[in-house]
Amino acid sequence: MKRRSDEEISAPLYAYDTAIRAEYGCFAGVDEAGRGPLCGPVCVAACILDPEHPVYGINDSKKLTEKKREALFGEIIEKALAYKIVFVGPEIIDRDNILNATMGGMRQAVEELDIVPNLVLIDGNRTPAGLTMPAQPVVKGDATSASIGAASVLAKVSRDRYMLELDRQYPQYQLAKHKGYPTKLHYELIAQYGIQPFYRRSFLKKQGYWPEGK
C-alpha cells in the first residue's frame, strides 16, 4: 500500500478550515493536552493558521510520532499568524477541578492571541464560558480541523517538554516514561517516594489513592 504524503494527510483538515474561513474569515483552533495525568499541568494552545503558508502533516497529535510532532511544532510556530500556549498548574486544577481549569486555560489562550479571531473552534463537546467571540465545539476536532490539529500539536509537545524537564529534576518518578499518566509503575513510584508539589492531589484522592505518611 502506498504511503500517504503529508499533504494528503492534511488535505481533509484544510478543506474543513477553508469552509469555515469562507463563512467567518479569521478563526482560531483550540485544544489541550494532559487532562488525565496525576501530575503536571494541563497545557492549552490556541492557533490561527495562515492559509497562504500551510503546514502539511498536521493531524490529531496522538496519531503522530514524537519525532513528527517535534518537527511540526517548529513549523507551526514559524508559519502561524498567531498562537498562544498556556500552562494551567496543579494548584488551579485542584482548586477548580480539571474541567474548569481546562476551560479557563482555553479562554486565556484565546484572549492572549495577538490577533482577535471572528470564531473559535474548540476540540470536544463544549466551549469555555465568558469568551467575547463566537465559539463552536468540534468533537474529534483535532482530526477534523487543521487549526485544531495544529493547536493539539503545540499543546502536546509543550507539555511533553515540560514533563521531560521535571524528569531531569525528579528522575525517581520516571516521568519521561509515562508523562505523569496513572500507570502501575507510576503508582508504585509514588508509594515509594511520596508526592511533590507538582502532583494533582485531587486526582489521587478521587482515585482512592493517597500515600499516607509520604
Rank of each mutant, 00 (worst) to 15 (best):
G105H: 01
Y181L: 11
F203H: 13
Q196K: 14
L81N: 03
L166C: 09
I122L: 09
E66C: 07
A191C: 02
I190Q: 06
G130T: 07
N97C: 09
G105P: 05
K177D: 03
L119E: 02
S5L: 13
A15M: 13
R159S: 11
K2C: 00
K63M: 12
L64Q: 13
G149V: 02
Y209K: 13
G74Q: 11
D6V: 00
I93Q: 11
K67P: 00
E112C: 03
A46L: 12
H186E: 04
H53E: 12
K206A: 15
N97S: 10
M106V: 00
S152Y: 02
A143I: 08
T18Q: 15
M103G: 05
F87M: 15
K184Q: 11
A146D: 05
I58P: 01
K206Q: 14
T183F: 01
E188K: 11
C43H: 05
T65S: 15
K63W: 01
Q169C: 06
Y24S: 12
Y187T: 03
L164P: 00
L154A: 08
K62C: 05
T132I: 08
P37H: 08
P117H: 07
Y181S: 08
Q207N: 12
E7I: 11
K214F: 04
Y24A: 12
A33E: 09
M133A: 05
A15T: 12
T183I: 04
R168A: 12
A150C: 13
A45D: 09
R161P: 00
D31W: 05
S10C: 09
D17F: 07
C43I: 06
Y14N: 10
A28C: 13
G130K: 11
N59F: 00
P197Y: 08
P51S: 04
K68Q: 14
K79R: 15
R107V: 01
E52D: 13
R3K: 14
A80C: 15
G25D: 12
M133H: 03
W210E: 10
G29R: 11
A146N: 04
V44H: 03
D17W: 06
A28L: 09
L185G: 03
A109F: 01
R126Y: 02
A15N: 14
E75F: 04
I190T: 04
L81K: 13
K179F: 02
L49V: 05
G149R: 02
D6L: 01
E111Y: 00
T65M: 10
P117W: 02
I195N: 04
A46T: 07
P90H: 05
K67E: 14
A146W: 00
E111C: 02
G74D: 11
E23M: 09
Y24W: 15
S10R: 10
K62N: 04
S5T: 15
G104S: 08
G213W: 05
A129V: 09
S5C: 11
D167S: 15
Y56M: 09
H53K: 15
S158R: 06
L175R: 00
P12S: 07
I58V: 15
I148L: 11
L113I: 01
E32F: 03
I58R: 05
S10M: 09
L72V: 10
R201F: 00
A143F: 06
K84D: 10
